[in-house]
Design a protein around this nucleic acid. Structure first.
Lengths: 124, 124
DNA sequence: AGGTTATTTAAGCAATTGCTTAAATAGTTA
DNA sequence: TAACTATTTAAGCAATTGCTTAAATAACCT
């Protein structure tokens, strides 16, 4: 597919091995990039962080905290729920969102970066 | 901004504290979501993984491995370089890309998930 | 049942993404 | 200098994203 480069010394063995490595982990890449693309949004990252801190929150709370429209927040929550990152609990007419176990091993370590930065900030 | 919800018992103290927490870490969210949005793409995630494995690769190699057009790969590399995730080294007319230290503490742990999945696969 | 509240869903739209093809740079070699 | 190679850049376009507003669900209360 590379169209232009005609290197006489292209290391075909290396290229073959790299292809194999990718192939071997193909489902990991799928899963990772899917979860990361959910976390790779300022609003959603904040939502995840808040849920990690507080346990559970409803759309109303999040909309107030983030100073955003309820539908806007709701749509982010939907994506996170569809991606199996969040789960819901209904209590009367309010619906509480919380982190789901399924992808927690990917999500959790991200907050560590925030915690570290916070600690550094405290010192300074 | 929440427009509709008029909860009499909205926990304004909680909401205020959450706002503060976000404010405190605002630059962390910026940085994190920026780096994550670079990694949250199947192609770019593979590029990062390959560079972690191989040390450095040129556009040609990557295009061959990923079975993609050179300009397509080049544009991904540009984004990663602009985001300070990659650096370049010129050797004649070929340009080698490699991981840059700056955001490595965010990028590196991601590969651990792939390594773990690989190990599990091996066992099974 | 009828009104109120919490939330979701849908339609519309501007902005961004990621590819394609073609042209421009830049270094190498004869 | 001219031809060649490796790479980047640019223009164009379809697909996706994330918001807005308005309407639809769903549970509660009287």
């Amino acid at each position: 597919m590379s169209t232009t480069c005609i290197r006489p010394y292209a290391d075909n063995i290396l290229i073959g091995e790299c292809k194999k490595k990718l192939q071997k982990a193909i489902s990991s890449f799928d899963k990772l990039s899917q979860v990361l693309s959910l976390a790779a949004n300022d609003v959603r990252l904040k939502i995840l962080y808040l849920l990690d801190e507080e346990g559970e929150l409803c759309v109303c709370d999040l909309a107030d905290i983030l100073e955003m429209t309820i539908p806007a927040v709701s749509q982010h929550l939907r994506k996170l729920k569809d991606g199996n990152v969040l789960q819901t609990r209904r209590a009367g007419q309010t619906i509480f969102y919380s982190l789901k176990a399924e992808h927690l091993e990917i999500i959790k370590p991200l907050f560590e970066h925030i915690a570290i930065a916070n600690r550094k900030k405290q010192k300074a």
